[in-house]
Design a protein around this nucleic acid. Structure first.
Lengths: 344, 344
DNA sequence: TGGTGATGCGACAACTAATGTCGCGTTATT
DNA sequence: AATAACGCGACATTAGTTGTCGCATCACCA
């Protein structure tokens, strides 16, 4: 890829080596990195390129308060090399709508240059026709949108770097139970984003057991000098399916059989429960018979629960019983409540 | 931004004008577009740049089967200008995990160069340490993940272009009720992605009323020559809240009061229902009292239903009644079922 | 606080690349 | 079959790029 004798390509490489704003890179470091990539160039040329070429043509800033100058891109600049096309831009807008309800603001913010880029493209496209794309695209999230827990930008950066580079982190953690802030040294093994909260899976230095740490309860995070230690036999999928996040999953799929009302039948015809689903009309009613291989997990059970009276599960028996029991308990609640209100 | 006399910048502009693969651009057209942007250059220079500079340094292809050559980028090439940093790459991986369950494969595929880019960065980062990031990051979707409806790539491209450029489309549509394919000319007004299905809001040529068209039931779509006509007074949010997608929403928020079990209290403390939520412990029990201003919509009601016996709603009364009634109906289902099974 | 090595920058000559033009052969178009 | 459009090699001209040197300034350390 890198011909040592090509200015255009060297410029491109430089532009890729200069980080976005919170980050910055010193001139000599840049020279070093360029040399690594086959661009052995004089320091003077580099300086000229930076201060005369790049920074006049690109939103590149320079911190000249100390002597090896540091260079950085404007915080929100973004340039796709094959420029965004219209369908991709639209997809990005949709993706942002969904992700805003799923990931902490800071994490989505990490991608904001991409989204801004997409919006800019759409804006420019309609500068004349003012088609107001923003009024034309909506994403309706699946289920109730809870408000994502807020986390700190530097926390996210430190944690993700530690996780991926296999380093340990020193954190100050606000424990869920004790409500006190405690310092820990953690050995990160994984990250799980569930609903709208994001958790770090790690073991505490000196201990063997894996624990979950909610990112939004990490008050401070810095990379640590401790050597990182792997969790032997760690498998994130097995961990999740073991029920760690309230989503226990049986070892194998089960065959769901149920009678479903017409609206549910229509929904499932468009977005099936699973690959193997079949739906057939029941005689003399607006009901349908559903058969599907589905995972034996909490999620599916909750989904069935949310369907309320529109679904009548016949198998597996454990689920039928679970739904029945749940309904009985709910009913008991409300009969209590009514009584309480009446006796007042 | 564009100094007419700068090769580097002209190259950059060219690279942005060349579309990704399914698209292509002819040499004279490129020359024209460059001229529009202030780069008045000889055709010969353009030809040299393309065939000798760019296509040797970039994954750019050329269709030379007909005489005005057509140029295009490799389908999956991606180059961010400030290169991706580690946290952003991780965020992209998470985003992809979520979106795969929410948007049709083709639509997510639209963004695949971005995701591929992120994965490549992470792969390279760990080339030595083989940290296997792919085994460390998971996103657990909110609610049951239904399988997104499949739609055609060209359909998505045509529809999104039509929507944004205010053009009409000729489609062949597989009607939900009649199961027959019919041709329509549509005036697109909006796109709504719900759960895992995506709908086009449009009115049929010659009619005034707005209808929904599921994208996966559009069998064919081509841009039409008919002049596009706006829907007077169209407001996508009002349309959705009017109940068009089964999510009717009352005009104003309601105050939800409920007693909730400990696990729910913990969940809501981390990811609140709304900005105004309060949770206080009830004496002598593991229960808590929840108060929150929430929208008066179906989504919230479903969420409450999914919580089953862990939530006891006290206000608003309409919701309490709805939940009670739903539980009664469910119970009736299962008592019937039990009887049926017993009499066998 | 003074010395030493890095860094930034202007200037300049040698070098390299980019540009427009012309001519020729080939390919669409009618 | 004729004509216009396009791709491409060659070449002189022009413009830009590169390394080097010298000097000023700044960071760092004893």
């Amino acid at each position: 890829m890198s011909d040592a004798r090509d200015t255009l390509f060297r410029y491109l490489t430089m532009l890729q080596l200069i980080p976005r704003f919170p980050g910055r890179i010193a001139t000599p470091v840049l020279k070093e990195k360029l040399a690594e990539r086959g661009f052995k160039i004089d320091t003077r040329s580099l300086q000229r390129d930076l201060s005369q070429k790049l920074s006049t043509q690109f939103p590149i800033g320079c911190d000249d308060s100390q002597k090896p100058y540091r260079w950085y891109f404007d915080r929100d600049f973004q340039c796709q090399l094959p420029a965004l096309d219209v369908p991709s831009a639209l997809t990005l807008v949709l993706a942002e709508e969904y992700l805003k309800g799923l990931l902490p603001p800071v994490v989505v913010g990490q991608l904001s240059p991409h989204f801004t880029d997409a919006r800019r493209l759409l804006d420019e496209m309609n500068a004349n026709g003012l088609s107001q794309w923003a009024r034309k695209v909506r994403a309706i999230p699946n289920g109730k949108a809870l408000i994502p827990a807020e986390i700190d930008e530097s926390t996210w950066q430190t944690i993700s770097e530690a996780l991926l580079e296999q380093k340990t982190v020193d954190v100050v953690y606000l424990s869920r139970s004790s409500e006190t802030e405690k310092p820990f040294t953690l050995h990160p093994q994984g990250i799980v984003s569930r609903h709208s909260a994001t958790y770090l899976l790690a073991h505490v230095n000196g201990f063997e057991d894996l624990r979950q740490f909610a990112l939004h309860r990490i008050k401070q995070a810095t990379l640590s000098q401790h050597p990182w230690q792997a969790q032997p036999d760690f498998d994130i999928d097995r961990y999740i399916q073991g029920g760690a996040f309230g989503y226990r999953q049986g070892p194998s799929d089960v065959t769901l059989e149920a009678e479903i009302a017409k609206p549910v039948a229509w929904l499932l015809q468009e977005t099936p429960l699973s690959e193997t689903q079949t739906i057939e009309a029941l005689p003399d009613s607006n009901w349908y018979r559903l058969t599907a291989q589905v995972p034996d997990d909490q999620q599916t059970l909750w989904w069935l629960m949310g369907m309320g009276a529109n679904v009548k599960v016949t198998a597996p028996a454990t689920w039928r019983e679970a739904l029945k029991k749940s309904a009985e308990q709910v009913l008991a609640h409300y009969q209590d409540t009514t009584l309480t209100y009446e006796t007042h």
